[in-house]
Nucleic acid binder design. Structure first.
Lengths: 218, 218
DNA sequence: GTATTAACGATTATAGATAATTTTGACAAG
DNA sequence: CTTGTCAAAATTATCTATAATCGTTAATAC
């Protein structure tokens, strides 16, 4: 499988890789909301058979990117304002659960790790690097979730986090990134001081603001 | 497709049906935790091809029944005490979110519906019908979730609810079913009086007790 | 003209066969 | 007795082909 020039040449693509390709197509809006995702088309396009494409589509359905109707096909999920707000409510519940537990068990190493991510996030804002900000923001919350050490919690959280991708770019411009970044301070502070009430307050406020801003778009 | 005797004779099984068959095998412990679920075996056993069995297994993985490792196979998930407690914490978070919203929007019809289910649940206890109790208990909570009108919330809740199946039978005998049934009263009352604080209190207590009892087992 | 049905094309879902990967077990070397 | 190598067996992942289903359009009956 290793060619003379040292490059890897794979015989075929795995369903995981196909999933990522289609996912990127959705995120980049190459595939638009409501549009159909035809198994055979993508199979031909990627030079693979129908089976792994089918699996990829099923995975994307579970992740919330796609809606699947029996014998009718798969469609890129349309996400309206309510969907996004609903997702925020769920995320609030899950991150609240994580934080309540995290303040009791977080280690110094984990605290430092999270602080670093927050600094990188602020730097990304200063540099005006939107992509990097989104990545670091996501990582910041992910680190907190991981402290909870609750596999199921993390799994579900990942499923509702996804829904941001397609919407965030639409409204982020109306906010100053700085404000968003600064808001993570209180989350970090609650963890650092191991203050449960502050943690609850911080999460509540974090999402109140996000939901509020989402409501003001229309 | 309809035979002379009037029975339906299907050409083949759909993956959904296969999923249910395997799920039942897991719940009934015909397939034990840790045991392997071999695609080709089940295909032969059910007289279908590998494809729909594979899909069924993937679905069961998403539902938390099965653990899948690439090129190694699928195994019935082992569920230890921590897994069950973790699931309770997540359920608490999700049901809390649902209740907070439900008290504000619940209609009289929905209230009556929930009351009826609660009565049926208590009746099942009186009759000593364990299976029916579990079904009604599940339905009770499901109805509350539905009031929230948050699709994502319901979807995730369904995923963590599943984890009870395999564990509940192991410890339920140590509790009086009556106590369990009675505990739903405060949940209903909070909804009826549309009292947010009472709702929060009720959910918190409900799961505190469940988690406590889970901890007191082995 | 409208409603109902039949046939077609496109696509999904499954079947049957092949390729890729891991696991197992026998055997040899240390 | 342990470790490592190799081939065979078992199983997963994918490929190709076929069957089932849906949506549409055209034809027919009323």
């Amino acid at each position: 499988m290793v060619e003379p020039d040292g490059k890897l040449k794979k015989r075929t693509l795995y369903s995981d890789e196909i999933r990522e390709v289609i996912k990127q197509a959705i995120i980049s809006e190459e595939l638009k909301p409501g549009e159909r995702v035809v198994e055979t088309r993508w199979a031909k396009k990627l030079g693979v058979s129908q089976s792994p494409v089918r699996e990829a589509i099923r995975d994307l359905e579970m992740m919330g990117f796609i809606e699947n109707r029996p014998y009718q096909g798969a469609f890129v999920r349309k996400m309206d304002k309510k969907d996004v707000i609903d997702a925020y409510y769920v995320r609030e519940a899950l991150e609240m659960a994580a934080m309540r537990y995290a303040v009791e068990v977080i280690t110094d190493d984990q605290l430092e790790d999270i602080l670093n991510v927050m600094e990188e996030m602020k730097q990304a804002v200063k540099d005006g690097n939107f992509e990097l900000f989104v990545e670091k923001d996501s990582l910041f919350h992910e680190k907190i979730m991981q402290v909870s050490n609750n596999e199921l919690l993390i799994k579900l959280w990942n499923q509702c986090k996804i829904r941001e991708y397609t919407s965030i770019s639409a409204w982020i411009s109306d906010l100053t990134l700085e404000t968003l970044a600064e808001r993570h301070n209180s989350l970090y502070l609650a963890l650092k001081t191991k203050n449960k009430e502050m943690a609850i307050e911080a999460v509540t406020e974090h999402f109140e603001v996000l939901i509020e801003e989402m409501n003001n778009i229309s």
